[in-house]
């Protein structure tokens, strides 16, 4: 099988690392070769962050390059727009519709771009957008945006609900398990 590529993008602090950990676990359990590449250190501080998840028979490079991503899971709509170029022809973007103003917008140096969903779709890209923040809050905490988006992503994979739930159990603390399971199902049904 040719290597498949999933990019997880967002704003530092949004919980992208947990999403990649969960994906890594489920893909490993299915017998794939897997590589997950993370960003630590300075760029985590509220900056634009990206995590790469790659799987297949044999994976070499830990990173995903322009035009290679089968899926981009974005925690914030501006970040989806930023990384569009990394999507493969025919790839899919799953995005949270939430807007988080970057510092240049906060200080008035530039405007937050408008109608990004429409502009991304105009490129002929399959864009699957949900309000993951509201769904996460509905599940019990705004921090569950990552699991809501994993629920949405799960619709594009053949794995069973049990596979996903096992991976969630291995990735979150027991006291938040029920909340996260709920968040996953809300994302899946959205």
């Amino acid at each position: 099988m040719q290597t498949k590529n999933i990019m997880i993008v967002g704003v530092g602090g949004q919980g992208t690392l947990l999403a990649s950990k969960l994906l890594g676990r489920i893909l490993l359990s299915k017998g794939y070769d897997v590589k997950v590449s993370e960003v630590h250190g300075m760029s985590q501080r509220g900056g634009s962050v990206v995590t790469y998840v790659r799987y297949g028979d044999k994976v070499y490079s830990p990173v995903i390059d322009k035009g290679e991503a089968d899926y981009i899971v974005s925690f914030e709509i501006l970040e989806a727009a930023r990384w569009v170029e990394y999507l493969k022809d025919g790839g899919t973007i799953i995005t949270n519709t939430q807007e988080v103003n970057p510092m240049p917008v906060i200080i008035g140096a530039c405007e937050y771009p408008q109608e990004l969903e429409a502009k991304i779709k105009a490129l002929g890209i399959n864009l699957d957008a949900i309000d993951a923040l509201s769904l996460a809050e509905q599940a019990g905490t705004s921090k569950a945006v990552n699991i809501v988006l994993m629920g949405k992503l799960s619709k594009y994979f053949d794995f069973t609900e049990e596979d996903w739930m096992t991976a969630i159990e291995q990735s979150v603390p027991p006291k938040f398990l029920e909340l996260n399971k709920k968040a996953f199902l809300l994302g899946k049904e959205a």
Binding site: L78, E79, R82, V84, K88, P102, P104, P113, I120, L123
Partner: peptide, 17 residues
């Protein structure tokens, strides 16, 4: 090498803060 398609829109930078 594969090349993606970028938005023509100017995307504001998001530096760490």
């Amino acid at each position: 090498a594969p090349k993606g398609v970028a938005l023509s829109e100017n995307i504001p930078m998001r530096p760490p803060v």
